[in-house]
């Protein structure tokens, strides 16, 4: 019988899945409401800094993902 949803099958896969979901949640409401303040960090608005933190966190998570995929030879 076919599965209902395609889900990760390893612990590393679940870890990546959770990291992806966390990244997405970090960029939308309600999290974005917590950084929605008119303060400057390193000369930039907090919301702008947060946006770039998310962008570079995406790079970091994908780098880890590459190691996992290539180690497990999922090509």
């Amino acid at each position: 019988m076919r599965r209902f949803l395609v889900l990760p099958t390893s612990r590393a896969g679940w870890g990546l899945f959770i990291a992806f979901v966390a990244l997405v949640l970090a960029g939308i409401w309600p999290v974005i409401g917590w950084v929605n303040r008119a303060t400057l960090v390193m000369g930039l608005p907090l919301l702008v800094v947060w946006s770039y933190v998310i962008m570079f966190a995406c790079v970091a998570v994908m780098l880890v993902g590459n190691r996992i995929v290539e180690r497990d030879d999922h090509e």
Partner: peptide, 27 residues
Amino acid sequence: FAGVFERIAAEHPEFLTLPGAGGDMSF
């Protein structure tokens, strides 16, 4: 960038947060 945003923070702080200067950029 600080020179630009310090002036915006002092004169127009509504541009630094949602819902923005027009009040229409909600969460």
